Amino acid sequence: MLSQKLFEEISNKISETIAASPAKDVEKNIKSLMSSTFSRMDLVTREEFDVQQEVLARTREKLTLLEARVAKLEAALFPEAAAEQERSEASQGHS
């Protein structure tokens, strides 16, 4: 959904515009229409987006650490394969 503050600002502007007229029903209908439209748009707030961005950054950090741990364990369990992998990476880097 859209930011609550933005929705309130739009609502206040509509209220100010219609306040002097007897068109309160129009205001209710517009609010209902806007609310319905925003809910169908499947939007997220900036706060929700920022939280998910932080979660993703932490997940990436953990993934990097886990990849390093797995590589270290594999090297300890299979030293021949690790040496071969290092030679292969070294030859690709020099090509």
Rank of each mutant, 00 (worst) to 15 (best):
M1Y: 12
S3E: 15
Q4H: 04
F7V: 10
F7T: 01
F7P: 00
E8F: 01
E8G: 00
E9W: 00
S11G: 06
N12P: 00
K13V: 07
I14K: 08
I14E: 06
I14A: 12
I14N: 02
S15R: 13
S15K: 13
E16W: 00
E16Q: 04
E16L: 04
A19T: 03
A19V: 00
A19Q: 06
A20I: 02
A23D: 01
D25A: 06
D25F: 02
K28G: 11
I30T: 05
M34D: 00
S35M: 06
T37S: 07
L43D: 09
L43R: 07
T45K: 05
E48Y: 03
E48P: 02
D50M: 12
D50Y: 08
Q52H: 06
Q53K: 11
E54L: 11
E54N: 08
V55R: 11
L56E: 04
L56W: 01
R58M: 03
T59D: 04
L63G: 00
L63V: 05
T64V: 15
T64E: 15
A68K: 15
R69I: 01
R69A: 15
V70Y: 09
K72A: 14
K72E: 15
L73S: 04
E74R: 12
E74S: 07
A75L: 02
A75M: 02
A76E: 15
L77I: 03
F78G: 00
F78C: 06
F78K: 14
P79H: 10
E80L: 10
E80W: 01
A81P: 01
A82T: 08
A82N: 09
A82H: 09
Q85W: 05
Q85L: 12
E86I: 05
R87W: 09
S88C: 01
S88N: 03
S91I: 09
H94Q: 07
S95L: 03
